[in-house]
């Protein structure tokens, strides 16, 4: 029974990992860009939420709105001002610029918030749970996280495949060079993609703040989880990313069930095993 419970909790945890990963997946899909500071942006959103709610005493609903708006505008501007300059065939500039950003963000957070690990008190969400059987109960927060992940991915899927914006994003992904001949502005389209990804990063950060303890150095691990979910799921497939998150979550909770020290390691090992067996992921699109 403990194993069934581990799997159930792992699936729910996978929702959080899918939220970590969805933005990364989107940015790679549209502009073949990998942001190594992705995890640090998630942690920044978590700190922002924490500061607004506990520091300034703002109502959580407004805080959520504010975090998402702040992330959206920061994402758009970051792409327009900085990241667009380093897009291109040469891999080194984007890798180094985002790696540099990662170091800057971690140390800036350290400067502002100290190295103490923090967590956002989610009130009744933390304690409420649904009892499925003797040994298995589902916490309200993990359930909400999973529902949010499904909702976010469904929304991204809708934008991508059912709207004019999504059409433009897919066209840009195919052949950015001639998009201007359709009246599209690449710099703007890329920034819109980053804006959407950043909103998802904001949502992920808010859940991270409530779910676990975090500290300024928590970003890189989040980047790795996000990356693993994307690769397990298969590049370019958003539902694949959800599946990848779930597999990673289950691997981790089962690992933790064996020995607390194995949680993260088990996730990495399952990822490497899938990379060996299915290099293109489980639901590849590209």
């Amino acid at each position: 029974m403990v194993w069934v419970n581990a799997i159930v909790q792992g699936v729910l945890l996978g929702g959080l990992y899918a939220l970590f990963a969805a933005g990364l997946s989107l940015m790679f899909g549209v502009m073949r860009f990998v942001n190594l500071a992705h995890g640090d942006f998630i942690v920044t959103a978590a700190y922002l939420m924490l500061a607004l709610v506990t520091g300034f005493g703002i109502h959580p609903a407004f805080a959520v709105l504010f975090v998402l708006m702040a992330l959206a505008s920061a994402g758009y501007l970051n792409q327009r001002i900085l990241l667009n300059r380093v897009l291109g065939a040469d891999l080194l500039p984007p890798v180094l610029v985002t790696f540099g950003l990662s170091i800057i963000i971690q140390n800036a957070l350290l400067e502002v918030f100290s190295a103490d690990s923090r967590r956002l008190n989610a009130g009744w969400l933390d304690t409420a749970s649904f009892r499925l059987s003797e040994d298995i109960s589902i916490g309200a927060l993990p359930l909400l996280m999973f529902v949010a992940a499904v909702g976010v991915i469904a929304a991204m899927q809708f934008i991508f495949y059912r709207t004019a914006l999504g059409r433009m994003l897919r066209a840009t992904s195919d052949d950015p060079e001639i998009v201007p001949l359709m009246g599209g502005n690449n710099a703007h389209i890329f920034a819109i993609a980053t804006l959407i990804a950043s909103v998802v990063v904001g949502i992920a950060g808010i859940f991270l703040a409530m779910k676990t303890n975090f500290d300024p150095a928590a970003g890189p691990a989040r980047l790795l989880f996000a990356f693993e979910a994307v690769i397990i799921g298969g590049l370019g497939s958003l539902w694949g990313t959800l599946l990848g998150g779930v597999i990673l979550g289950v691997a981790q909770t089962i690992g933790a069930q064996i020995d607390a020290g194995y949680q993260i390691l088990a996730g990495h090992l399952v990822f490497l095993a899938i990379l060996v067996a299915r290099p293109r992921g489980l639901l590849p699109k590209m």
């Binding site: 890798v95 890189p220 790795l224 693993e228 020290g261 390691l265 990495h268 490497l272 990379l275 290099p279």
Partner: peptide, 27 residues
């Protein structure tokens, strides 16, 4: 294993491998 990944994903893949080593050493 790492050569199954391209570009920036290769970079992150090497990082995962390093993490596996670190976590294993701790065990």
């Amino acid at each position: 294993i790492a050569f199954r990944l391209q570009g920036a994903y290769f970079a992150i893949g090497t990082w995962v491998i390093a993490e596996v080593f670190r976590l294993s050493a701790a065990q």
